[in-house]
Structures are given as structure tokens and as C-alpha cells.
């Protein structure tokens, strides 16, 4: 069971399992009723191609199921949330 303070996560970089830097975390979406963490709100890097991903405005929504681990970086499996 790994716990982390959410303020600790602010400004952390989000990296995919294949070594690509996706962007920087901006916020976390939660369901207050169940306490479930649903998505990460990520500001994508300029050179990251966002065309295959769910994007709202300039923010990328990464479902929390795609998160593999959180240490110095937040590692996500980008195949779990791409549309292709």
C-alpha cells in the first residue's frame, strides 16, 4: 500500500512506460462521494502529439488506471488511454 500526499504530486513530470515525457501534472480528478481517484489532469509537453488522446482545452486527461507507479516521475502506460 503506497500512499502519497497530493501536494507532493504537483508539478511532477508524467512519463510513459516507453520513456516518453508526456507532460506535467496540473490537477487530480476525484469522486468526492466514493473517494475514488479517476483522472490525472496533465499539461502536455509541446512536442507531445496529443491527437490520439482525450483532451479538453489544453489539458490531457489520463485515467488513473493507466498509472503504473509514482516516485520521482509519474509513470503511465500510454497504450491504456490512447484512442488507437
Amino acid at each position: 500500500m503506497r500512499n502519497t500526499f497530493s501536494r507532493n504530486l504537483s508539478r511532477k513530470k508524467v512519463m510513459s512506460t516507453d520513456g516518453m515525457v508526456i507532460g506535467t501534472i496540473r490537477n487530480i480528478m476525484v469522486d468526492f462521494k466514493s473517494g475514488e481517484v479517476t483522472d490525472l489532469v496533465v499539461k502536455p509537453e509541446q512536442n507531445f502529439d496529443t491527437s490520439n488522446y482525450a483532451i479538453e482545452g489544453d489539458k490531457l486527461f489520463v485515467p488513473f488506471e493507466a498509472v503504473k507507479d509514482i516516485r520521482d516521475y509519474i509513470v503511465v502506460d500510454r497504450y491504456l488511454f490512447s484512442r488507437k
Binding site: 500500500m1 487530480i28 476525484v30
Partner: peptide, 29 residues
């Protein structure tokens, strides 16, 4: 909802007793 909305929220019990303010949210990864 965004987790940042919780920061600074006042915490009360159901007997209307003030407990404190939310400083941080601990997530089980």
C-alpha cells in the same frame, strides 16, 4: 471534481463541531 478544490475546505462533524481545515489529501496509489 478537482482535488485542489478540497484544499482549504473547512471540516465539520455531523454535530456541527468545527475540526479544522484541509491541508492536504493523501492518495492510496
Amino acid at each position: 471534481s478537482a482535488i485542489t478544490e478540497m484544499f482549504g475546505m473547512h471540516v465539520y462533524t455531523d454535530k456541527a463541531v468545527y475540526v479544522g481545515d484541509v491541508d492536504d489529501v493523501i492518495i492510496n496509489v
